[in-house]
């Protein structure tokens, strides 16, 4: 393993860094962890894009699925795709804040919503395929 990057000691919060809610307290974490947090944020953004793409494709390609159920599943996918960037931002901020203050890392707030929502959307597609 590598020897790691030195942890930056406490420094006075002189320069204003956005958002203050995150950077206003605590001390600098190992930069590798901040970068990992950034990649997790980006993964949530790509999740959002994938969810939105699924919803748009269902409707735009007029797939052979019962129309009401198809629209319902598309809407569920897109609403989840709307929630994912919120999770991306809130999760990034909460994790960065927790790392700066040596607190336990938060769980994804919308994890359950996304799991249930994706399941519901999948069931709607399945039902639509069977009922067409």
């Amino acid at each position: 393993m590598d020897e790691g990057v030195e942890r930056v000691p406490d420094e006075a919060p002189t320069v204003h860094r956005f958002p203050r809610r995150v950077y206003g307290a605590g001390r600098e974490p190992d930069p590798r962890f901040s970068l990992a947090n950034e990649r997790t944020f980006l993964a949530w953004i790509r999740t959002s894009l994938a969810l939105v793409a699924a919803g748009v494709a269902l409707e735009a390609l007029e797939l052979p699925i019962a129309e009401g159920l198809r629209l319902a599943s598309a809407l569920v996918f897109i609403v989840l795709g709307l929630l994912a960037p919120a999770q991306a931002w809130l999760g990034w901020a909460a994790t960065e804040r927790a790392m700066r203050q040596d607190r336990p890392l938060p769980a994804p707030r919308l994890g359950v919503v996304l799991a249930v929502g994706t399941t519901v959307a999948g069931v709607l597609v399945l039902a639509g395929l069977l009922l067409r």
């Binding site: 995150v22 950034e38 980006l42 919803g55 748009v56 609403v79 709307l82 960037p85 991306a88 990034w92």
Partner: peptide, 30 residues
């Protein structure tokens, strides 16, 4: 100075907004 790592807030906020916008456009489309 690792200021580059510590100034991620701006791009991250901007990309979050872009993600929301993409989803809203998709909602309007459907």
């Amino acid at each position: 100075d690792l200021a580059a790592i510590r100034s991620a807030g701006g791009p991250i906020a901007a990309l979050s907004c872009a993600g929301l916008m993409v989803a809203l456009v998709a909602l309007a489309f459907v």
